[in-house]
Design a protein around this nucleic acid. Structure first.
Lengths: 208, 208
DNA sequence: GATCAATGTTTACGTTCCATACATCACGGA
DNA sequence: TCCGTGATGTATGGAACGTAAACATTGATC
């Protein structure tokens, strides 16, 4: 109905359209009730058409997840302008939880199911979402502690997001940002104290 | 084929059998490919029989999840014998991650999907899994900080478990327990430092 | 022994994923 | 100019699944 499509038998670029439609639909429906047929119909195309572009449903969801990671990374990058790494990390946490709360269904697609490729796990590769994160952490934490600090922050962020998104804890009503900020603060104190104590027992407490 | 069943038209207690079968199957298959029909067949019963005991598939999964929480609580309770709360909390973390690693599919059933009842969220109620947790935390953390400490620990534990269970991080090869212990240590340092510093900035670091 | 509620069966329908065979278009070389 | 070739979308249909409705079977109770 638009510029290039005369009596378009061929859709143009169905692949991108399907991913975009899926992203749009996830604003309102849960991942489970996202169907290939539904997407195809929405795109004004036959029910089997998507299979020209995606091996199966999982492949489409995988592409959707990838788009989600791009968006998430964009959000994190946009708050990476703080000079102090500690503030940047807290801003990351707020943005991360904000993303999950804004797009809970997309977040579930991103972290549910099997990973896109078996060995494509989360890493500290700076090009990835978590690389941003990791780079900032490296400015605060000595090398020996980086791996554990990375995992701890990652787990906290994902855990909180996941609990909220899956309705396991009451969404903090008005302010998930406030909650993210407080928990990130607690975590960072742990990470930094760990860096200071440098090893083993955290700091001789009391007695016994 | 056993004692009470002659030519059993009636199964006996199909409900429990179905839950037990689901638990057993989850040792090997993923939650998505768990079907009511499959369970019914496995129980030697017609495909519609489960509907006498469960409203729908979600209801059965909900019962399975409940059984999972009972088991998880049992595991946590069994390591609650440390005198020192700090050690108990670390033991909880290890047991928690151990459970998730032992039964990844069950863990996903427990925390995936929608919560059993809309307002049956995770709480610090001592009868629940997380109540054990919460009770120990209360021995270390002043009242004003308890809610945030609880959420922080919960998020960390669930986040780590979830990342491992969903294949997002390389299962720490041989020793998830070691990882759990280290991350729990980091978290507790944060929580305790928070309790000590009592507010705001953690502890003047270095400079700048 | 007859009645009844609980439990399991049968049949059937709609939805979904997907395999296969076919139609239509875009484009480049003879 | 015309045709072949590959990319893309369509049509048809099967299999698995969830679930609704009507029916059969059983054991307990009066």
């Amino acid at each position: 109905m638009s510029t290039s499509a005369r009596a378009a038998y061929h859709h143009g670029n169905l692949r991108e359209t399907l991913v975009a439609l899926a992203l749009a639909m996830l604003e309102q429906v849960e991942p489970e009730q996202l169907t290939l047929r539904g997407l195809a119909e929405e795109a004004g195309v036959s029910g089997m058409a998507p299979y020209r572009h995606f091996e199966d449903k999982a492949a489409l969801l995988s592409a959707v997840a990838e788009a989600g990671f791009v968006e998430l990374r964009r959000r994190l990058a946009s708050v990476d302008d703080e000079r102090k790494p500690r503030k940047a990390l807290i801003a990351f946490a707020v943005a991360y939880i904000g993303f999950a709360c804004d797009k809970p269904n997309l977040y579930r697609v991103m972290f549910g199911g099997a990973p896109p490729t078996p060995d494509d796990r989360l890493t500290a590769d700076p090009r990835t979402v978590f690389g941003l994160f990791s780079t900032r952490l490296a400015q605060l934490v000595p090398p020996r502690r980086r791996a554990e600090a990375f995992l701890a922050c990652l787990s906290l962020a994902h855990g909180l997001a996941s609990l909220i998104v899956n309705g396991r804890i009451r969404a903090p009503a008005d302010e998930p940002a406030k909650l993210a900020k407080r928990l990130a603060g607690v975590m960072l104190r742990g990470v930094l104290t760990s860096a200071v104590a440098e090893d083993g027992s955290p700091r001789r407490r009391r007695r016994r």
